[in-house]
Design a protein around this nucleic acid. Structure first.
Length: 592
RNA sequence: GGGGGCGUGGUGAAGUCUGGAGUUCACGCCGGCCUGUCAAGCCGGAGGUCGCGGGUUCAAAUCCCGUCGCUCCCGCCA
């Protein structure tokens, strides 16, 4: 039906007889000659419909409208002198049609197919099939495809085998909320959709696969965000007889290949590394954006003897005082005070700003409370140049780090849009405490501790063989060396407060598997949606997902999630709770 | 569960703070003119229950209360 892609035609094709098919992007009707920007998946080319060539009846030519699906045949011409369009890759040529057929007319669209117009996202999702015609969306889908292809190529080159794992699995209520699917054959029982293929890929290692990967759809029933959807896609991989370095080297191979294929950028290897502790101390987060420096400096020692009550009090109660040199922010007095307000909003008692004067002194509301020595030491410790703004927070150490880390992101200016700063964060703690003070696994409970004895004796400080891949301040994924020793696995469950019976009931099948010669193994999962979004400079992952959900988990196009017939529920042995039915009744009454 | 932003012809925006006739701009749509434009141009036209409900007022897009939707964030996301 077509011989060429519209966007592929170049000066070299001049003189070629082509048949094209696509959509009318723009129509410029001069009463006689009609120009059409013909758009297909490959791009756009100008088609000239001249009544003198009789490609169609004059009535048909004048009735062409935007987004009509048409096909044309004609000759590729070089455009007349001075009429090339440098904005288009095909701008040097045009196709002079000798036939034109309307394949499928279009009603007036609910919005225009135009990258320059920002349409309400609910409307875009309701008509996603039209939204996808926008060149930026076409490009995002293509980029996603390229990324996945690059990943598969690397994995194949490295000898990995793609294996599919089930998506109807047993629920293991731990971590995120499971998506549940009722079973008809076993009424009252439920499958869960996987949060990740974690345990299955470990079973594959026990099964002797050695090198596994999968482009895996994962599900987590938690609230949505710009970088979180209910379902998302990971490149999941695992290797036997592997340790941390093998995984990190593989991640470098994948990331550099993807970046090269998609953006043509050569990323330096090896990627920089920070320990989790270093990341927290220097950037106040476990996913630092290292496109700019602006590290957090500990100023507690500077104020050890201070007479400034706000600072001495914090130190006396075991907190710390830290600051960042935010550089020349060019903010007014009220702008600087705004930063203090922002710090309070983020949970700090306050924030002190100090503007460096030309003579090296400071202009600051608190300068008069600080000694000459203290001021000098602040200046030295933060390497402040004239004009630089030093921001200081004094509070509990964790609060100080979190607040400064966030302020850093808000005042920091990444140098270039195109810069891609990959980073490994390693040596994560094994456990963290939840709000009740109990230990919970920071990564997941199948993560190997660096030292089992240390883990038992001082779980709060134990380090695990877990690592993250970070890109421009976003967590792209996590991985770890897994536990292959059933005794260690039991120890971890014990520390987590999971009883033997509980562990047996929930993970017994897995604990048993570990007992049959489990190879040491390690792996990782990369969030593909997040990676593609960053590489495409997209503001959220919905832009790189063809049919995403809104923030309330709905699809405005198909109307999911939706209620189902009583018959369907009866077959499943499932009933909607009366309280929920009552809410429906209220909604319906309000709707009438 | 909590906090912020947004909701105005088909689309995007201004108008809302400080109440006074559905006012304005661009695109699209309909009709007309136009044979080299490229976000074509020119002329004319149609199109809106200002998300929804209630309140205050002589008068509400505008103020107040509630509610729904979208979005950003916190909690949550082993």
């Amino acid at each position: 039906m077509k011989t060429h892609g519209a966007g592929t035609l170049r000066a070299a094709d001049v003189g070629t007889e082509v048949t094209l098919a696509g959509w009318v992007g723009r129509r410029r009707d001069h009463g006689g000659v009609v120009f059409v920007d013909l758009r297909d998946a490959s791009g756009i080319v100008q088609v000239v419909l001249n009544p003198d060539d009789a490609p169609a009846s004059e009535q048909e030519l004048s009735s062409l409208r935007m987004e009509y699906c048409i096909s044309i045949s004609g000759l590729v011409h070089l455009r007349p002198d001075d009429m090339a369009n440098p904005e288009l890759p095909t701008g040097e040529v045009e196709v002079v049609a000798n036939t034109m057929t309307v394949l499928s007319p279009s009603e007036t669209l609910p919005f225009q197919i135009d990258d320059r117009i920002e349409v309400d996202e609910a409307r875009r999702l309701q008509y996603r099939y039209l939204d996808l015609r926008r060149p930026s969306m076409t490009e995002n889908l293509r980029a996603r495809s390229k990324v996945i292809r690059a990943m598969r190529n690397v994995m194949d080159d490295l000898g990995f085998m793609e294996v599919e794992t089930p998506t109807l699995i047993a629920s293991t209520p731990e971590g995120a909320r499971d998506m549940l699917v009722p079973s008809r054959l076993r009424k009252g029982n439920f499958y869960a959709l996987p949060q990740s293929p974690q345990l299955f890929k470990q079973l594959l290692m026990i099964g002797g696969v050695e090198r596994y990967y999968q482009v895996a759809r994962c599900y987590r029933d938690e609230d949505l965000r710009a970088d979180r959807q209910l379902e998302f896609t990971q490149l999941d991989f695992e290797g036997s007889f592997w340790g941390q370095e093998d995984v990190l080297a593989t991640l470098e191979a994948i990331s550099t290949r993807v970046t090269k294929d998609l953006r043509g950028i050569d990323v330096d290897q090896p990627f920089p590394r920070l320990t989790w502790h270093q990341a927290m101390e220097r950037y106040g987060t476990d996913k630092p954006d290292i496109r700019f420096d602006m590290q957090i400096t500990d100023l507690s020692d500077v104020f050890a003897e201070t007479g400034f009550k706000a600072f001495s009090g914090v130190l006396a109660s075991g907190g710390s005082i830290r600051g960042i040199n935010a550089g020349a922010l060019g903010l007014s007095r009220s702008g600087l005070d705004g930063l203090s307000a922002r710090a309070q909003e983020l949970g700090a008692k306050g924030l002190v700003w100090m503007v460096t004067e030309d003579d090296g002194g400071f202009r600051s509301p608190v300068a008069k409370f600080l000694s000459e020595t203290e001021l000098e030491e602040i200046s030295t410790a933060s390497a402040a140049e004239p004009g630089d703004v030093v921001l200081i927070v004094a509070d509990e150490t964790q609060t100080v780090l979190e607040v400064l880390g966030q302020i850093r992101l808000e005042v920091g200016q990444p140098d270039g849009h195109d810069e891609l700063a990959y980073l490994f964060v390693v040596d994560f703690p094994v456990f963290e405490r939840n709000e009740d003070g109990d230990f919970v696994a920071l990564h997941h409970p199948f993560t190997a501790p660096v030292d089992v004895r240390e883990m038992s004796e001082d779980p709060g400080h134990a380090i695990s063989k877990a690592y993250d891949l970070v890109l421009n301040g976003s967590e792209l994924g996590s991985g770890s060396v897994r536990i292959h020793d059933p005794a260690v696995q039991a120890k971890v469950f014990e520390t987590l407060g999971i009883s033997d019976e509980d562990a047996e009931r929930r993970f017994g099948w897995f604990l048993e598997a570990l007992r049959y010669g489990t190879p040491p193994h390690a792996g990782f999962a990369i969030g593909i949606d997040r990676l593609v979004a960053i590489l495409q400079n997209a503001p959220n992952i919905r832009e790189v997902i063809p049919f995403p959900k809104t923030q309330t988990g709905a699809d405005p196009l198909t109307g999911s999630p939706s209620r189902v017939d009583d018959d369907q529920l009866r077959e499943l042995g499932v009933e909607v709770r009366p309280a929920v039915m009552a809410e429906w009744a209220v909604d319906e009454a309000a709707g009438d």
